[in-house]
Design a protein around this nucleic acid. Sequence first.
DNA 1: TCATGCATTAGTATAGTACTAACGATATTA
DNA 2: TAATATCGTTAGTACTATACTAATGCATGA
Lengths: 136, 136
Amino acid sequence: MTKSTNNVSKRERDCLILLKEESRGDFPMRLHEIASTMHIKPPSALNIIRRLKTKGFVEAQDGMIKLTDLGDRLSKSILMVHRTFESLFCQSGVPESRACREAGEIDFLINSENAMKVLKRIDNPASCPHGKPIKA
Amino acid sequence: MTKSTNNVSKRERDCLILLKEESRGDFPMRLHEIASTMHIKPPSALNIIRRLKTKGFVEAQDGMIKLTDLGDRLSKSILMVHRTFESLFCQSGVPESRACREAGEIDFLINSENAMKVLKRIDNPASCPHGKPIKA
DNA sequence: TCATGCATTAGTATAGTACTAACGATATTA
DNA sequence: TAATATCGTTAGTACTATACTAATGCATGA
């Protein structure tokens, strides 16, 4: 499939971002929750989790699935790229929801240093169209 | 692998672009040429060609491999997106060769209408950093 | 005619994605 | 307490994309 420097596939990316955005400190996500949010069955989700564990981005204890420090850093980086390109698309006149979808297709493929340069080029917005901060 | 609206994978994209850029009217490419340019063995290249044929982007006669009209249109569209993002990266300060590589990772994933909007946003350059026209 | 080169087929392998069926453990609840 | 439900997990299947080697078949030029 398609990989980046960070070596994550599209669905691994989806899962990482889900864990980053949906986990609330004391309430790490559980497998069934991940599966249903990703619209796949638990064994499929487990397969993705397994790969993310192997790569060191995720750890699981007692059914609680959470990001490692490495996974947290990668998620932040992907989100920064995502919000940068989402902002670019929105500034260009692409409707917000399409901009988000489009950004999600490429955010895990683009080098974060290059994205930072693009961010500057598009006038350094502080937050994405949803209002989330671009630079963590 | 990763697919777009146009349903081509990364290597299918590479092959399409190669055919678009290297074919010279009377000299369509041959399998061995495609394979060696893509740094793969002929059977691997043939496999990609087979998929592109199935999808209607490529046709072969007497060992001559060329784009169909549909394939030509798709290649043009991908190149437009490529050059748009390449220009964006260059304008942002990313070195040309990196800009090209980065653009190549995403050009087949991005909707061309959205890319046209981005092109306008980045001041409508007529040509990419290599001097090739962006709008065919 | 024979060797070379090229296209093609067959078979293997790996990664990613997703499914069903089945099993084991735990927890709820009737 | 016993039955049921829920959840995680394993095993097995399948399909796409990617790339390989080995072998076969065809055509052309020496």
